[in-house]
């Protein structure tokens, strides 16, 4: 067994809710409660849950956009949340993210090539950024000349390809995909899922795949973690969780994902 690429240990994150009354203390929402998981290189972990399950908060902590109140995120053995701001910025090239909304994750005023090259500029990559931008575009199935276009010239599926190109341009080891196919039409969704699998095979990426749709997760994940109200309900190899769900809630999700 290889050492884990990413290890999340007992992650807990609490938010203070806005006070509803001057007389009562602000109540606390535990968005993520004592959640642990590991991802190995070349492996996909699916985190399944609905709005309020804490799955997006998990993604934000793994991406070090926010710090856990308890627990730690070890990336290649290094605790991300104990790094200095400067060290963290350098480390960021190794873990990248694809967002849900392909219309919101690209700056509308910047050419696509500019956006894709941004992570390289941020860390001062030497060499030919233009060539690597073209390569990234071709890796996601788009022609290199698309670098000179603006985001509004692309469809939702194409934009998601661009977002993926941008995420892999720094040759990361881990990709976090937060509802990355949820906003897409079914026929386009399958294309993007296949693209993620192709890239994983080619680049040996570990993927943290977050979704509310158990069917989508089933198609791409090796391991599954089901979350509800911030708590991990069950986890294990995908086939096992899908074939014999231990929890009633997982069964509901399976029913919603729909076998007919």
């Amino acid at each position: 067994m290889t050492a884990p690429l990413l290890e999340a240990r007992n992650l807990t994150r609490r938010y203070k809710l806005p006070r509803t009354s001057l007389l009562h203390a602000a109540s606390i929402l535990t968005a993520v409660d004592n959640t642990s998981f590991t991802i190995r290189a070349g492996e996909t972990l699916g985190v399944v849950g609905e709005s309020g399950s804490g799955k997006s908060t998990v993604a934000r902590m793994v991406m070090a956009f926010e710090a856990p109140d308890a627990g730690e995120v070890l990336f290649q053995g290094q605790n991300l949340h104990s790094l200095s701001a400067a060290d963290l910025r350098v480390q960021r090239q190794k873990f990248q993210m694809v967002f849900q909304d392909p219309f919101g994750s690209l700056d509308p005023r910047r050419k696509v090539g500019w956006s894709i090259a941004e992570p390289m500029r941020a860390i001062g990559v030497d060499g030919d950024t233009a060539r690597r931008t073209s390569e990234a575009l071709e890796q996601v199935g788009l022609p290199a000349r698309d670098a000179d276009k603006y985001p509004h010239e692309f469809s939702g599926g194409q934009r998601q390809r661009i977002a993926i190109a941008r995420a892999i341009v720094t040759r990361p080891a881990l990709l976090v995909a937060d509802e990355a196919v949820s906003a897409l039409d079914v026929s386009v969704q399958a294309q993007i899922l296949n693209l993620l699998m192709d890239l994983q095979d080619d680049l040996g990426l570990g993927i943290l795949f977050i979704s509310h749709d158990l069917a989508v997760v089933a198609s791409i994940c090796d391991q599954i973690l089901v979350m509800q109200h911030g708590k991990p309900l069950e986890s294990g190899p995908a086939a096992q969780v899908l074939r014999s769900p231990a929890h009633g809630y997982t069964q509901t999700l399976l029913k919603a994902a729909g076998v007919f």
Binding site: M97, F99, A163, A167
Partner: peptide
């Protein structure tokens, strides 16, 4: 907006 988050992920200050 997500594109700002994406830029943070890219390592921009």
């Amino acid at each position: 907006y997500d594109y700002v988050l994406a830029s943070r992920a890219a390592g921009l200050n």
